[in-house]
Amino acid sequence: MARYTGPKTKKARSFGEAIYGPDKYFERRKFPPGQHGTSRKRKQRSDYAVQLTEKQKAKYIYGVLERQFRGTFERATAKHGVTGEWLLKLLEARLDNVVFRIGLARTRSGARQLVSHKHILVNGIVSNSPSHQLRPGDVISVRGKSQSMDVIKDSVANRSPESRRYTWLEFSPDKLEGRFIEYPTRDMIPEKINEQLIVELYSK
C-alpha cells in the first residue's frame, strides 16, 4: 500500500474529523463522502471495525505505511510503560513529524519531502529518512545551501501558534535549528487518537 495522495478533505470526512488540521471545506461538509450524503443511515459498527478505523486514522495522520506502523507498535511494546502512549511518543519522534511540528514545513507530507530531498540535518549529518527516530538531545537543522529555499522561509515566517506550544521541542527561527528535548507525555500530544483501541486491535 502506497501513501495516500488523494483528496484530504474527502479522507477527513470518512473519519468524521479534520485529521489533517483546520479545513474550511470539511467544516462545510462534515457528513461522510458518497452519493447519498447525509441521507445514508450508518450501521452500528463492531468493536473490530471501531479499532481498525482508529488505527487507520493514526496512520493517515502521521503518514505511515502499515509495515512501518506495525514496526513502531512492536517497538512500543518493548518499552517500559503504557504501550499506547509509547506508540504515540515514537510517532511524534519521527523526523518528518518533528520537522512539521517546529514549523519548517506546513504539513507532514511537506516535511517528508524536505527530509527525502536531503534538506534536513540531524546532529549535523544529512538524513533522508522521514522515519528516522530522534532521541532526546538531537538537533535538527536545515542544510546550509537549503536555507534560502522559499518554501522553508515561508513556512517559518507563517508558523502556526501551535508550533510554539510544543514544550518538548525547541526552535530558533534565526538559525533554522530545533532540538528534540524529550519524549512528550500523552497530554502534550494534541492528536485526537484513542491509542487504547489500537492496542486492543493488535492484541487480538
Rank of each mutant, 00 (worst) to 15 (best):
E200P: 03
T107D: 05
Y20K: 05
S146D: 03
A78L: 12
K79L: 09
P22N: 10
L104V: 00
L95I: 02
R165H: 13
L65M: 15
K11L: 15
Y62H: 12
D96N: 05
L197N: 05
I181H: 04
T83W: 11
D96I: 01
P161A: 10
R3I: 11
A18L: 00
A58V: 09
F100K: 02
V199F: 12
L197S: 05
Q196R: 14
K145L: 06
F26I: 06
T5Q: 12
S116Y: 03
P173N: 07
R112T: 04
T38S: 09
V142D: 00
P136D: 10
L197P: 03
D154L: 10
E85Q: 15
V126C: 04
A58K: 08
A58P: 09
E54K: 03
G16N: 01
Y20A: 07
G144W: 00
R112Q: 10
D138T: 03
Q133E: 13
R67A: 13
L121I: 07
H36F: 14
V151M: 12
W86F: 13
V142N: 02
V142R: 00
F69K: 11
E177Q: 15
L65G: 10
N97H: 07
Q113W: 00
P32R: 00
T185A: 14
A58E: 09
K79M: 15
I19H: 01
D187T: 09
L176D: 00
I61W: 04
S155W: 05
K192E: 06
S141M: 08
L95T: 01
H117N: 14
T72N: 12
R135H: 15
L88V: 07
R112K: 12
G71I: 03
V156K: 01
E162W: 09
R67C: 03
S129G: 02
A93G: 10
P136A: 11
E54A: 05
D23Y: 07
K57E: 04
I140P: 00
K10H: 04
K10P: 01
S116A: 15
R3F: 12
I61Q: 07
K192V: 03
G137E: 10
S131D: 14
S127Y: 00
T53R: 15
G63M: 13
S39G: 07
K10L: 12
Y166W: 11
N128E: 12
L121A: 08
I189A: 05
M188W: 07
A58S: 14
L169M: 08
E74S: 13
R67W: 09
E54G: 05
P173G: 06
T167P: 02
R135K: 15
R40E: 13
T77E: 13
G6P: 09
I189R: 05
T83F: 09
K145E: 08
F100R: 02
G178A: 11
R67Y: 10
P190A: 06
T77A: 11
S146C: 09
G137Y: 06
L169H: 06
A157Q: 12
S146K: 02
S141H: 07
L104Q: 00
F69W: 11
S148N: 14
K8S: 09
D138L: 03
S39A: 14
R179Y: 04
L176R: 00
Y4I: 12
K204Y: 14
Q51N: 10
F73W: 14
K24M: 06
G103P: 07
F171H: 00
T53W: 07
A12M: 02
T83P: 08
Y166Q: 11
H36L: 12
E177G: 04
H119Y: 02
Y25K: 14
S141V: 05
N123K: 05
Q56F: 08
F26K: 06
Q196V: 12
